[in-house]
Amino acid sequence: MNTLITPLKPAHRDSVLRADCDGQTLVGLLSEPVLAASDTGVLLIVGGPQYRVGSHRQFTLLGRALAGAGVPCLRLDYRGMGDAQGDQRDFEQVDADIAAAIDAWQREHPSLKRVVLWGLCDAASAALLYVHRRRDPRVAGLCLANPWVRTATSLARAQVKHYYLDRLRQPAFWRKLLSGRVGLGAVRELLGKLAQSRAPAPAADTRHYTEQMADGLRAFGGPVLLILSGDDVCAREFQDRCRDGGPAWQGLLNRPGLRREDLPDADHTFSTAAWRAHVERLTAEFVRGVPAVA
């Protein structure tokens, strides 16, 4: 007897959404629920140099998972990235791109009332800079994964604290050193990192992008989901900045409305299926709980 197998219907549909930004075209891929969609969508900002698919397709999979959970998600190529027009730019220069994407999304889908910005690494930094500079009332929440706060000094401090000091505590390192299997170059690198980690912050840091990020996080009125990987230097630098970054950063991890989720074994891009699924669940749950903008 032949059994007729009915194919499963997809829980989402994908479409291209284009936006004009200062005369240049941005390209986004919009994943939407097939059934009724939430009036809150996720604008997934992609850090550079990268485009909307992401490493190991993480952004494609995240966008479709959210759509399957009832949350529309727009993955954006800002100017100079992927299929978008314009010159390449970094995360400090994409405020206009984010605003243009929200404008186009609401124009084509009037049911969209509010947006959650989602960013990994320097895209999380871009989200904080955007809410700091634009105060856009349409942004109702932030999902920040391993935010980028790097300076040469912060990287050196994180490497010394979380990598080199751990190595110095390992008997195997000293056995290799005494046996000649650790080269002089590695020893010189360690000494160089120690010297760099003790360097004072440069005078230009008076209004460094990290301080603007801190201002954005402190002043933002909506809820924030902060996801930190355990096996990631960027996450360690962010935690160090929150603890040792001066008055601008003091108390930020305890601000009202901030929910912190640690993935102790995860790497920077949540590269396993289990880590990816965990982030998808956290994001969908968070977005469903975002209140309407007053």
Rank of each mutant, 00 (worst) to 15 (best):
I102T: 13
A36G: 06
V71L: 15
Q212M: 13
R281S: 05
T269F: 06
L66D: 09
D95M: 11
R218A: 07
G216H: 04
T206M: 02
A201F: 04
D166N: 11
L128K: 03
G86P: 09
V293G: 00
H278S: 11
Q85P: 05
L66H: 07
L168V: 06
A140F: 13
F220E: 01
G180N: 05
T151Q: 10
P202G: 02
G119F: 13
A292M: 14
R64A: 10
Q159S: 03
G70P: 03
Q212P: 04
V34M: 10
R236S: 09
L263R: 02
R255D: 00
A36H: 03
E211F: 09
C73M: 12
G222E: 09
I102Q: 14
D240P: 05
L74T: 02
L191H: 05
M213T: 00
G54E: 05
R288K: 14
A273N: 04
G82M: 05
K113S: 15
D90W: 11
H162D: 06
N146H: 13
L66Y: 03
L253C: 03
S229R: 03
H268D: 07
R276F: 14
Q88A: 13
L120C: 02
L8K: 10
A36W: 01
Q212W: 14
E189P: 00
R167M: 11
Y130P: 05
G23I: 06
R260N: 00
N146R: 03
